[in-house]
Write a protein that binds this DNA or RNA. Structure first.
Lengths: 157, 157
DNA sequence: TTATACTTTACCAATTCACTAAAGTTTTAT
DNA sequence: ATAAAACTTTAGTGAATTGGTAAAGTATAA
């Protein structure tokens, strides 16, 4: 399904942001420094920069420049799907070329074209239905973390 | 999801076999020549050979040697899933490394590991549930073809 | 015994991937 | 102002993978 390390890193970035920039109550989301994201998630800073550009172009993150700048989510985590994230950083997501092109096969009609269309739709569905909030909350639950607290204070046994 | 042209060709091959070697009633499945498959599906013969080796190792096809040799399905088309086909020709199917390895992320625990496991399972499901027979029948229905007749005689308008 | 077909191993050019590098630009704290 | 910290943009590159060729060999039926 063409998912590269950009998707792998992008999900880490978005989940990190969802967790560490979550507004405590009704305040604005906190700004997270890119160096903190890179350190926590083990992403080379220069490579993270490139991924951030794509996430920003898709309005999935907002950047704040300047001395105390950083990133925050572009909109609420429950309005961002996993598909949004992957589509933002990949150049095209499809299991095979057959899905990406209209005229994919042998004349007059490709025996597998319809099958690939169905496969693609079925594989895409869970990505469209799962939100960043769901993924992050599930992780936080399993690791018994306080959303606003950070890792150190409240790791489960 | 790591699907290469081997999967693309493999599905064509298996659907071609399912269609052209379907036993008319209770007879044995017909043998289909590799050159016919290659021609109909537009696959370089030498490359088709390599794919056939993998399909044969997985018992998805049987080969018959000799002058009037060729291939037939290894078992009934309704007992072959699309996942079987792709798993046979790919070296490993997973959206990202996170799924393939136990220790994928940053210590002490990867924030995205569980999410990727869920994603993988959800994307795999439709492939496991769809059989070659379903895919082929659907195509034959839409193109109004007689399973035993071949393309020429009965193409729909 | 020969034509036809399948099998196996080896090889390679082109592309893509994942990342590095370096020279900027922008903004804020002081 | 001005320096520090952070983000932006454009190039480049080594390694790995992909998609396909090539060639020599093996097996079987007519």
């Amino acid at each position: 399904m063409n998912l590269t390390s950009k998707s792998r890193y992008a999900l880490k970035i978005m989940m990190d942001l969802a967790h560490y920039s979550a507004p405590p109550s009704d305040q604005a989301a906190a700004i997270v420094r890119r160096s903190d994201i890179a350190r926590r998630q083990g992403i080379p800073t220069e490579y993270l920069d490139q991924i951030m550009i794509r996430l920003r172009s898709a309005n999935l993150v907002e950047s704040v420049r300047g001395r105390s700048g950083g990133y925050r989510l572009g909109r609420a985590a429950d309005r961002i799907t996993l598909w949004d994230v992957f589509a933002a950083v990949e150049d095209g997501i499809y299991p095979v070329e057959c899905v990406a092109t209209e005229n994919c096969g042998f004349a007059p009609s490709c025996i597998t074209h319809d099958a690939w269309s169905s496969i693609f739709a079925a594989m895409r569905e869970p990505l469209v239905k799962t939100t960043l909030a769901e993924a992050t909350d599930k992780w936080a639950d399993e690791h018994r973390m306080c959303p606003a607290g950070g890792i150190r204070e409240c790791r489960g046994s």
